[in-house]
Every structure is written in structure tokens, then in C-alpha cells.
Amino acid sequence: MERVVSLVPSLTEAVAATAPGLLVGVTDWCSHPAGLAATRIGGTKNPDTAAVLALRPDLVLANEEENRAPDLAVLHEAGIEVLVTGIRTLDQAFAELHRVLVTGCGLARPRWLDEAEAAWAALPPPSREPRRAIVPIWRRPWMVLGRDTFAGDLLARLGIRNVYADHADRYPRIPLDELNAAGAELVVLPDEPYRFTAADGPEAFPGLPAALVDGRYLTWYGPSLAAAPAALRAALR
């Protein structure tokens, strides 16, 4: 592959860390690495498909959750190869990163991917019973992690049991009074997609310890996975 467009910030970072010269187009939300020299083609949910086509990519990288099927269909119909990833667990993330970089982009497997796998494999088992937590990802309305999510799988490996892990929805809307009555021991507040901060989020859960975590370590699948175990463990303490 010589020309790649990425519609997924995590995959943009993964390709940039391996062969940055391949990227000719990325989304407005692709913030890592900083200063990336590639054409911006809109958001993950509203890419400018005409701009993507104008870049004449050999491959477009997408994700079943982050990108919309109608946009990908436009690219398919124009004869563009689109590699759609599905990532709901850490193991899937590692497998899909290998597929994107090695199979899709034709690159040698990068060292950082091996280092990330080793970092998670070396993670010691939790030293106590899992802590019950709620994990908001938005407010107004309040939304939390539900079933079958990548972030939920990472937290489970770190000794955190998502109270809503068995909910029928992956990102359910739960009223605040119900969240506070859910029997959680901890509230985990990432800084994306909603930017929770010490002054915006913890006050909604009086008496409940709050862990502010870097959303890139919790929700991105790429080079950040190598540092994520240590960073998340520190934040969850």
C-alpha cells in the first residue's frame, strides 16, 4: 500500500507510529501524533467522502462502531478497498492491529505492538475482589459503559467490575439517581468522549471515590496500549 486514509483516530496513530508516510488522509479527531501531515477529511461520523475519493487511496481504514455504514458504502461503490475493524476486547485489538498493519498495509509487524502485548501479559492479577464501578462516558444525558466494550474489557483486567456490564445496551442512558443507587464503589471518569475533569463530574457522585483517567489509555487501541496498564493502574488507585 502507498496511500492510506484512516477514519479512526486509534488506527491513525497506529499507522503513523509504524509508517507515517502512508497516511494521506485522516479525520479531524486524529490528534496523535501531533502535527501529522495528512489531509483532514472531516469527522469519524461525517467524513467528506468526496474528499476521501479525491485522495485516491489504496486503502481506507474504518471501524464498525466509529464509522457509519452509509459512508463506507459510498467508498465501496467507488471501488475503494475498505478494511473495517471490530474491536470489543483487548485480544481483538491486538489481532485487528496486526491485520491492519501487516495484512492491510503490508508492513512488517512493529515492535511497539509486541511491547504492548507484553505489557498487558505482564500485568499481575488483581490483589483483591473486583471493585464495582460505574463508567460514565457522557452527561446531559448521562451515558455509561454497558456490555461488550473494549474499555470495559481493559477495566476488568485491572480489577474493576462494570456495574452495567450485563446491560442490554452497549452505552445505556441511565438517570443520575439510578447511577448513584447502583451500589458502585467507584466512579471512573475518562476525559473522552466527554471531557470529565476534577471540577466536572465527581460532584455528581457525592461520597463515591472518583478516578479520573486519560481516555486515550482507556479507549484507544494503538501504541498507547504499551503504557496503558501502568497509567490506568496508577489512576485507579
Rank of each mutant, 00 (worst) to 15 (best):
M1W: 04
V8F: 03
E13P: 08
A14H: 05
L23Y: 08
V24Q: 11
V24W: 10
D28G: 03
W29M: 11
A34S: 12
T39P: 02
K45R: 15
N46V: 14
P47C: 04
D48W: 09
A50L: 12
P57S: 06
P57N: 04
E65W: 04
P70N: 02
H76E: 15
E77G: 10
R88I: 02
L97F: 11
V102D: 11
G106S: 08
A108W: 07
A118D: 14
W120Q: 06
W120S: 09
A122S: 14
L123S: 08
P124N: 00
P126W: 03
R131W: 01
A133R: 02
R139T: 11
R139D: 08
R139P: 04
R140A: 13
F150Y: 15
A151I: 02
L158V: 03
D169R: 15
L176Q: 01
D177V: 08
L189W: 06
P190T: 03
P190M: 01
E192M: 07
P193G: 08
Y194M: 13
Y194L: 09
F196D: 04
G201E: 05
F205Q: 10
P206V: 12
P209E: 05
A210S: 14
A211S: 14
V213N: 08
D214Y: 06
R216I: 12
T219S: 15
Y221T: 08
P229I: 00
R233N: 03
R237L: 09
